[in-house]
């Protein structure tokens, strides 16, 4: 079971911080995409690169560059470790700015 936000700190994070992150995106039919976030628009249509896919039947393969429309997304997840790194990075950044 993945964690939800009540259990985890997202302190100071904004959407642009997630660019370059590895996202795990749950789609319909038990399909999961893992890729780097390259871009997103205001409707949350994502553009992912170096995408690996795990289909509902377990078949794994590489797809490359994939556009993921919001309406196809059931969930967007980020590894805890990566999230922690982002928070830490942002904290340091803001510290230096101030």
């Amino acid at each position: 079971m993945s964690k939800d936000l009540s259990q985890v700190s997202m302190e100071g994070l904004k959407l642009p911080d997630f660019v370059g992150c590895t996202l795990y995106v749950n789609l319909h039919n038990n399909r999961i995409l893992k890729g780097s976030l390259m871009a997103l628009d205001a409707q949350l249509n994502l553009l992912l690169d170096h995408v690996q896919e795990r289909a509902g039947d377990g078949n794994r393969r590489t797809l490359g560059l994939v556009s993921v429309p919001r309406k196809t997304i059931q969930a967007i997840k980020v590894p805890q470790a990566e999230l922690n790194q982002l928070v830490q990075f942002k904290r340091n950044l803001l510290k230096n700015v101030v």
């Binding site: 964690k3 936000l5 997202m10 969930a75 967007i76 980020v78």
Partner: peptide, 14 residues
């Protein structure tokens, strides 16, 4: 269990 569901965060931010 290592994954954090950030869907709501994304939706709210967007």
């Amino acid at each position: 269990e290592d994954l954090v569901d950030v869907t709501q965060f994304f939706d709210d931010s967007a």
